[in-house]
Amino acid sequence: MGEPAKLCVSNQKGGVGKTTVAINVAGALAARGRDVLFVDLDPQGNATENLGMMDAYDEEPPTLFDCLTDPEQRGAITDIVREHEEMDVVPSNIDMTAAEPELTLARRSGEQLDLLLDEIEDDYDYVLVDCPPNLGNLMDNALYATQNVLIPALAESTSKRAFELLFDHVEAIELDYDIEVHERGVVVNRIDVRKNQAQEMVEWINAAFDDVPVWEVRERAAIQKALAEGVSVIEYDPECDMNEVFLDIAANLDDQFGLGDAETEEVTA
């Protein structure tokens, strides 16, 4: 299949619905007929839980932690990948809480995820990495491995500072590794249209990111219910009006990565 499109979903500010965006974008790509590998790089394991794989979080070694921190165990990644009805998943694990200090000691500390993905990525159209909500070695690994970022944000003033911190970090990574990280879009998440500040921030974000797509996802109960059922909202509720947004993100990503037309499954948006 060749080299996949690789993308991380990243914002070091917690509570922005990062995992929700990541799962639903992955689900939308799958609905367009794409083969997706979802990597839960967050030691908290929210995506692992929301995809119905909480048992993997407590599994014995080898786990993602071992594959990421021990070069001799990289090959075990093929045994860790789990099948989900919409995508394949590399689940997080409780041992990942020790990954930050362990990676600090490693040679080529920011390149370990990239080396790990070399073992499995050729079977997929997309590799989508859900990042932890903080700046550190795991975030560095995600940015280096994918060199593409989709940024979830809230429609509130705290997002301005979060953008600044993220872009400062991205710039440092680009300089350190002589790479270019591409912004593939911003997803303004959980918008409450009743709040004036939300509308003002949506306008600010659209103006600030005039050269990349900005999508707006409004608060919907179906989105949270889908996560409780271990699937994307597209799989859970084909009638949800926000499906159209996630499917548009997927179509736009296909265009940006030059993947052409997909064999779209029957999806009602």
Rank of each mutant, 00 (worst) to 15 (best):
G2W: 10
K6H: 12
K6V: 14
C8R: 07
C8W: 06
S10D: 13
V21M: 05
V21K: 00
V21W: 01
V21N: 02
V25A: 09
V25F: 05
A26V: 12
D35S: 14
L41N: 08
D42L: 03
P43Q: 05
Q44E: 13
G45D: 04
A47K: 00
N50K: 04
E60F: 06
F65L: 11
L68Y: 04
Q73K: 15
A76H: 10
D79R: 13
H84Q: 14
H84C: 13
D88I: 10
N93W: 06
M96K: 09
T97A: 15
P101G: 10
P101S: 12
L103Q: 10
A106F: 05
A106K: 11
R107Y: 08
R107C: 02
Q112S: 12
Q112E: 12
L115F: 01
L116P: 04
L117I: 11
L117C: 09
E121W: 05
E121V: 09
E121Y: 03
D123Q: 13
D123K: 13
Y124L: 04
Y126S: 04
L128P: 03
V129C: 01
G136I: 07
N141T: 14
L143R: 06
Y144A: 03
Q147N: 12
Q147M: 12
N148M: 07
L150I: 11
I151G: 10
A155E: 02
E156A: 10
S157M: 09
S159H: 07
K160N: 10
R161T: 15
D168M: 13
V170D: 04
I173R: 07
D176K: 07
I179V: 15
E180N: 12
V181A: 01
R184K: 14
I191Q: 00
Q197R: 13
A198M: 01
A208C: 09
D210Y: 06
D210T: 12
E216M: 06
V217T: 09
R218T: 10
R220G: 05
A221T: 15
A222I: 02
A222L: 00
K225P: 09
K225S: 15
A226F: 00
E229W: 03
G230L: 02
I234Y: 00
E235W: 00
N243G: 14
E244W: 01
V245L: 01
L247Q: 05
D248F: 01
D248P: 08
A251N: 13
A251T: 15
L259N: 08
D261M: 07
A262L: 11
A262P: 14
E265V: 05
E265A: 11
T268P: 08
